[in-house]
Nucleic acid binder design. Structure first.
Lengths: 200, 200
DNA sequence: AGCTGACAGATTAAGCTAATCTGTCAACCA
DNA sequence: TGGTTGACAGATTAGCTTAATCTGTCAGCT
């Protein structure tokens, strides 16, 4: 069942992890535009060239950083979903609420949102947000398909992408409280979910 | 049925219209950050103070400009919806497709999207996008309630807001073609609409 | 009601040089 | 092989100063 990860992959993974963690620490202290690649490399105890070797460019690294931080939230979402496998509608609500609440309170997210401008990280979630949407959609799709195997894959993906886009929209421009937003969105998506799961 | 608009309102409306039109012309030629309030006033044949009197500040004017330009798209959406009053699902698809296609081709929208940064107009659709979402939601809600009077107002509004947020998301970060996006979104929302209209 | 002129405070343009950063080498070590 | 070092051109930014411009708000004039 468990194939031990061969050393090269493990080392590579550790390298990436260390670099991204170093970057996260920096980002919490000052805007992304002021953080240099050299500083990140040094903070990770690695040479600048190793950083470039692993992540082709500054932008690619920023992309990876945003996604890496996103993992934390998606993990929380996964957990929330798995706690409501018996009630898809509650699962959607819990997932969105969990995401909106944890993301809304996260200092790093707050920085990311306030750090407007081309130089910041925000464009990677909005204007150039496709890779993030793509990634989050795939992860969420997997979660859904795992929780409800009877769901048709295309519908699972459609639901996942919509949830991702709505989640991003509500984090960047919140209207109601996380709970209210989650409840309303759950209400909207429930009929689709019922139909997708064959519970007409 | 038609109460003639009293002069004061008409004059005020004309003033706003003229100023916003002047601003639109400028925005098509160079970034918003380089356009001054004085230039807009002059281009409209009006003094700077009149501009400030009508729109409190530069940001408020920018807000109004974005919404004013949005009117064009919402008008197109209204038309698209009214052509499918017999088929709500087709109406949603047509509305979204119309919006995404016209907005995607619009030079002003392209400029707005490429003009990243705090100084540009983009934040008014993303980070500080609530007023725009609010406004578009209200307009679309009205359209829906007018087309399908039997729809419960809260559900109409929920549908409208979701459509608005998804539309903005898909303009700023397009995944598929407008047609495909519209079709998929229509598929997702159809069950909710059926239920809201009592056609279980 | 709208224009003019004037205002303080803040921001930006312009000019320049020195410093720094990115991205990519080749050469060097474990 | 996977990592480090050092060096590199080209582009970007930091710093600094001064002059210019812009915003937002007056009061007074038409």
């Amino acid at each position: 069942m468990e194939a031990r990860t061969p050393y090269p992959q493990a080392a590579r993974q550790l390298l990436r992890e260390t670099l991204l963690a170093a970057a996260r620490d920096e980002v919490q202290q000052r805007p992304w535009s002021e953080i240099t690649m050299a500083e990140i490399a040094t903070a990770a105890g690695v040479s600048r060239q190793t950083l470039y070797k692993e992540f082709g460019s500054r932008d690619e690294f920023a992309q990876a950083l945003v996604i890496h931080e996103g993992e934390r939230f998606l993990d929380a979402v996964d957990t929330a979903v798995r706690e409501h496998l018996d009630d898809p509608r509650a699962a959607i609500g819990a997932a969105l609420e969990t995401f909106l609440r944890t993301a809304g309170e996260d200092p790093l997210v707050r920085i990311l949102l306030s750090d407007d401008g081309t130089a910041g990280l925000l464009p990677f979630v909005t204007t150039q947000g496709m890779p993030v949407v793509e990634w989050a959609t795939s992860r969420l799709t997997a979660t859904i398909e795992q929780g409800w195997p009877q769901a048709p894959p295309p519908k699972a993906r459609l639901l996942a992408e919509t949830l991702v886009r709505l989640a991003i929209s509500h984090v960047t421009a919140p209207a109601d409280s996380p709970e209210a937003t989650a409840a309303r969105t759950g209400e909207l998506l429930a009929p689709f979910v019922d139909e997708a799961l064959g519970r007409k």
